[in-house]
């Protein structure tokens, strides 16, 4: 993995230099590594997978082996400028609780997830009557870690319900490209959705 991934670049564009970042489900640490080099961010990745933790340690990314479903209780309020949840929201037990936790420990949050409203997913489920399988959703229904898939609209509704203000959003296709069509029909053509948000200021 490298910094040429558009989702990484979008996230980097959204993050202020020298920020303190918490990356939930940081995988092999490539995003934190990229942000460290491009934006001088510091912080920690949380990851449960043994092999990923080993890779993070090898590349010098701070990683704390933990289960996101156990919550973020060991982190104090507002201890990070930004909390990132990259392609992990759909795999956690309590996405709504985790979003609240993100905005407790961080000033801003960034979430990316595979869009279940993408036309190919709609086609496979609606016309073929099969659970969708694609490059963004590569698993079969019986072995997928993704237990809370959602569409762009679903996510935006959850944000409204939770009093979360979306500051910016983007969608990219399976090759992580941004194209005009995506801007016009994000919930149909976007395969990966990216949102930057914060707690809405009470009116």
């Amino acid at each position: 993995m490298n910094g040429s991934r558009v989702d990484f670049r979008i996230i980097a564009d959204w993050i202020r230099p020298d920020s303190r970042v918490l990356d939930l489900g940081c995988g092999d640490g490539s995003l934190l590594d990229y942000l460290g080099h491009s934006k001088r961010v510091s912080g920690y990745g949380l990851e449960i997978d043994d092999a990923h933790v080993g890779t993070c340690i090898k590349r010098g990314v701070n990683v704390i082996q933990t289960d996101l479903d156990a919550g973020l209780s060991e982190f104090d309020e507002r201890s990070f400028d930004c909390v990132i949840l990259s392609l992990t929201l759909q795999a956690v037990k309590y996405p709504d609780r985790l979003l609240r936790e993100m905005l407790r420990v961080g000033t801003e949050g960034i979430v990316t997830f595979p869009n279940f409203g993408h036309w190919r997913a709609r086609w496979q489920l609606g016309m073929l009557g099969r659970m969708p399988v694609s490059s963004a959703l590569p698993h079969e229904w019986y072995n997928t870690p993704n237990i809370h898939l959602c569409t762009l609209r679903d996510f935006e509704k959850l944000c409204r319900d939770e009093g979360i203000e979306v500051l910016e959003s983007e969608v990219v296709d399976h090759a992580h490209r941004r194209r005009l069509g995506l801007r016009l029909f994000p919930n149909i053509l976007g395969e990966i959705a990216l949102y930057r948000f914060r707690r809405a200021i009470a009116p």
Binding site: R20, S42, Y44, G54, I57, N62, I64, Q65, F75, S79
Partner: peptide, 21 residues
């Protein structure tokens, strides 16, 4: 061990933690 990890990240120090099965 997590108590030590927390105290270290509370101070913004570089820390990694692994739990070995």
């Amino acid at each position: 061990s997590r108590e030590i990890v927390k105290a270290l990240h509370d101070n913004d120090l570089n820390v990694s933690y692994a739990e070995i099965t």
